[in-house]
Design a protein around this nucleic acid. Structure first.
Lengths: 228, 228
DNA sequence: ATCTGTGAATTTCTTCACAGCA
DNA sequence: TGCTGTGAAGAAATTCACAGAT
């Protein structure tokens, strides 16, 4: 889990665990396509994605994909199927709230503009930053958030503010109709039903690593690692 | 998950899913302690942590904690038990490789220094950055990485480089004895057994949100959201 | 009366293992 | 023969529901 758990009905049947892996497959396939690879077997793709090949095949079968027995999967075709499933065929307007180092890093993140996401707003509460251009987008006062979110039909809001501001920003986003939120602030957000929140939490990740590190040191034991 | 799956033996029995939630409990409890709250019930703590209370109780019982029936848990005691379990009682030397906006954001991240983690190195491949002070730490050439990791007994390496450099940096970290890696680069890392990798992947998170967003738009349906 | 601790039921996810198509 | 697709088995995680402590 980056780490979001919650209840999630069967939808049309694609499990969360599978959805969470699709972006990885998509990225690996993109790399293969760029290198001109035409077909790939489940073993190869699974290896490159760091998963078990039976799991990969099961994941793909849930997308009603079809490989060719004895051959493998068509890279381009698989790419477009996964892309469509993930909703990458349309463009999602995104706002980033909080233009500190993290907000800047996110705004400048290449994969952002590249695939399906368009940064339509950068907001901050510090007047010093108003008007500044970051990744070609002008920083606006966070008080413009509601209007902007409505005007641009923002689908996804990214919270990169300090923890204390996070819930408040979240509330404004939700009130403005944003139903998908990516939260980088170390705070638990509460939202109404129908709103999805995913969190990215540096401190948690470090602490989880520290736990395992401690176990490793504890008894000079050789153990099996986790690969991501 | 954030998102790391892999095989993980029972250790002394604490499941991964539980470990991944401990940092959240720890953070919430820290907030309660600061506000002078002495005891907390499983319902309250679960609510504030965004989890089901039975799950919380089960998680805590795995730590051999003990609450008082009819009352709840002692906040301070629970904090120290979770902290100890997570290995926060000792200090973990951390290096960050890649001093772009993301690396800076990580270096300046408050929770870094505050709880159990000490930034002992910032490395980059761009000579322009050498010598620069970030969060009080001088940026050094990435070629110093191996020596530094050895000298400082680095436990955790954070990769905040572009994707193309990630595997190479990872290899150096591993060769230098680092067995816990937090990877922010959009790349699948391969590591030997005994090395833990956790990944934080912005593009994946956005794509997962896009998937759900698409489902929501598809059929104007009211559904249950995910809370983090 | 309240709230913990936990067996048992349930659901979700993973892995195995192999039938069957190319 | 090589590799996919999947039923069935297995493992892990979640949730229920309630006995029992305070």
């Amino acid at each position: 889990m980056a780490l979001t758990a919650g209840d999630r009905r069967g939808r049309d049947g694609i499990p969360d665990a599978t959805i969470a892996r699709l972006p990885v497959y998509h990225r690996v396939l993109t790399g293969l396509a760029e290198r001109g690879v035409a077909t790939v077997s489940s073993d190869e793709l699974a290896e490159a994605s760091g998963v078990n090949s039976a799991k990969l095949r099961k994941d793909l079968s849930l997308l009603r994909t079809h490989g060719t027995r004895g051959v493998g999967y068509d890279v381009e075709h698989l790419l477009s199927q996964i892309g469509r499933e993930l909703g990458l065929s349309q463009e999602w307007p995104v706002v980033v709230v909080g233009v500190g180092n993290l907000g800047r890093a996110l705004a400048n993140y290449g994969g952002f503009a590249s695939r399906g996401f368009r940064l339509v707003g950068l907001l901050d509460s510090d007047p010093v930053r108003f008007g500044e251009l970051v990744a070609g987008v002008m920083v606006r006062p966070v008080t413009d958030l509601a209007a902007l979110a409505h005007a641009e039909q923002v689908a996804i809001g990214v919270i990169a503010t300090p923890a204390v501001a996070a819930q408040q920003v979240c509330d404004v986003l939700v009130a403005a109709g944003v139903r998908s939120i990516l939260n980088f602030a170390p705070a638990v957000l509460s939202v109404p039903d129908g709103v999805d929140v995913r969190k990215v939490d540096l401190a948690s990740e470090l602490q989880i690593l520290a736990y395992h590190e401690q176990r490793k040191s504890a008894a000079g034991i050789v153990r099996t690692g986790v690969s991501a």
